[in-house]
Structures are given as C-alpha cells and as structure tokens.
C-alpha cells in the first residue's frame, strides 16, 4: 500500500460510481446502457418489423392490438473503453498541495470506478509524448496495474497533449476519454477535442491547478522561471499585476469551458487542494 493510494483513498473511491452518458458499441457485455438496441433485458423502444430482423423479438401482443409487426428494442449492456490521459509534464509537479498527487488520485479514482463498472480502462501518462501506459485493464482485480503505472510516473518534459493523444493508437470505437492536466501548453484544446470527437469519444476535461496558480502568493520582484521551458519573466508584483493575472486566468478557464461546451465535452475545474471524492462526484454528475 503506497502513500499515494492508501486504504482510506481506496475506501473512498469504492463508494463512488462513475456514470457515462454516451452510446458505445462493443462486443463484450459491460455495465453501461447503450443506445444500441439489442438483446438486453431492459426495454428501450419499439419499431416496425423490417425483413431481416430477428423474428423472435416481435412483440406479438402489440401485433394483436395494432395488427402490425413491431420489434421490441432493449438497451444493451456492454463495457465502455475508458481512456485516461494523465499529464505528467514538469508543470504538473508543482504547487502545494502538489498537482501531481491530486491528479494521480483523481486518475486512479476514475479508473477504479470504471473498472468496478466493468469498463475497460487504459491509463496513459503523457508529456511531450506517451511516457507510460497500461491498456485495456478489465476488472478491479487488475486495478493494481493502474496504480503501478501511476506510482512510477516521472514528472518531466514539456506538455504536448495533442501530439501525445494522436500518438496513442486509439481504437475507433465509442468510449470515454478523460484528460487530466493543467493545460499549460501550446496545444489548442479545440483541436484536441475535435480529434477525440472524431474518434467517437465522450470527453471529460479535468483542468487541475494548484492554489498558488489560482491565487499567486508572490509579494516581491522576482524572475519567474518556467519549470518546463526554463523561460523567464521578470515581474514586480503589484496589485494591478495580480489583478491582471486573475483576469487572464479567468479568461483561460472560460475559453476552455466554452470550447468544451461547443463540442459536447465536459469541463471540470479543480484545485489541487480539493478532496478527490469531491472531484469524482463532480465528474460523476455527468
């Protein structure tokens, strides 16, 4: 049992359930409702019989009432592929509490919940490429594979989300993609979401920032050094500068949210000092 994923954490996530609001096609039965009507037990709808349909699904009672052949449609229960992209660039290893801890716990929690819901989870750690991953984990018994990956993450390099996602051989099937990052990158979120949508993904953007990024605690004249690029910016902190920073941050978040709404993605804004349960519940609402 590691410090990152202690017993209390696991106990917390076991109580959480993640629900997906999208349709998926798949060959293995899972625990999610699909719009693909089929041979499941849960009734979904009727439609007129057309030649080629399984005549066993004809509702004869309806034929008796309407003298027309109707076929019963059922929600098919099947597994959803859940791809969790966790940003492990250098910028994520910063803040108090550290974003790396909060983000990994969130990733682990989402993965665990997915596994318990019989989903197929792929955990992908990305920076300027794919650093580490484990694909298609099924069943919570294999949750340790997820945690192994997360515990062995090395926070380094720059963040290039789009490039990393594109390099991931995404299967052309409906699924869920969760991106956990601070999104301090040159990538265009619009392009990322567009790409994932094309790949039939239901997208969850988890934007995680540290409290120091939300409310800077710098009181003097300093030279800011970018942890990823080592780029520097000299500032003399004044109330007007802090005000300007807040506006820029707000604009940054609003822009991301608008982009997500536009493309049907879900945007969640978290602070690294939030409890992971709160984060998961926030995600689970959708």
């Amino acid at each position: 049992m590691s410090e990152l994923f202690d017993g209390k954490f696991l106990q917390t996530i076991q109580q959480l359930t993640l629900s997906a609001h999208f349709s998926i096609d798949g060959s293995t039965a899972g625990n999610r409702k699909s719009r693909s009507k089929g041979s499941s037990v849960e009734f979904s709808d009727y439609r007129e019989y057309i030649p080629g349909d399984d005549f066993r699904r004809i509702d004869w009672n309806a034929y008796g009432r309407f003298e027309k052949l109707f076929v019963k449609l059922f929600m098919e229960e099947r597994e959803a592929p859940v791809n969790i992209f966790l940003d492990v660039s250098k910028s994520m290893d910063w803040g108090k509490p550290n974003k790396s801890i909060a983000s990994r716990r969130l990733a682990a929690a989402l993965a665990y919940i997915s596994l318990t819901n019989f989903d197929r989870v792929s955990m992908v750690c990305i920076n300027d490429g794919i650093q580490n991953m484990c694909r298609n984990v099924r069943g919570k018994n294999l949750f340790h594979r997820i945690t192994d990956v997360l515990e062995n993450v090395c926070y380094t390099g720059r963040s290039s989300i789009q490039k990393s996602i594109e390099s991931y051989c995404m299967q052309m099937e409906r699924g869920i993609t969760i991106i956990i990052s601070d999104f301090f990158s040159q990538d265009n979120l619009h392009d990322i979401i567009k790409y994932l949508t094309y790949n039939k993904q239901s997208i969850y953007i988890c934007h995680i920032l540290s409290p120091q990024e939300i409310r800077p605690e710098i009181n003097e004249s300093v030279r800011l050094v970018d942890s990823e690029t080592m780029e520097t910016v000299e500032i003399t902190v004044t109330p007007s500068l802090l005000n300007s920073y807040s506006k820029v941050l707000e604009s940054f978040k609003n822009q991301m949210e608008r982009t997500c709404i536009k493309w049907g993605a879900y945007y969640f804004n978290f602070s690294s000092d939030m409890d992971v349960a709160e984060m998961v519940k926030e995600v689970a609402k959708h």
């Binding site: 250098k90 910028s91 994520m92 910063w94 803040g95 974003k99 601070d182 301090f184 540290s210 120091q212 990024e213 710098i218 003097e220 004249s221 300093v222 030279r223 800011l224 050094v225 970018d226 942890s227 990823e228 690029t229 780029e231 520097t232 910016v233 000299e234 500032i235 003399t236 500068l241 300007s244 920073y245 506006k247 820029v248 941050l249 940054f252």
Partner: peptide, 25 residues
Amino acid sequence: LKQKHEDYIISSVYLWQNALQDIEA
C-alpha cells in the same frame, strides 16, 4: 532600470506572460 530579480520557479509562465500587458516589460 529594471531590478535584478531573484529566480522563482513556477509551473508555467504562460499566464504571467499574458498578464504582463506592459509593452515595456
């Protein structure tokens, strides 16, 4: 003259760069 500042490492200067509207920065 701009003062010589001490280095302060942050996650990213992305937001700060945008915040510094002063063209003489």
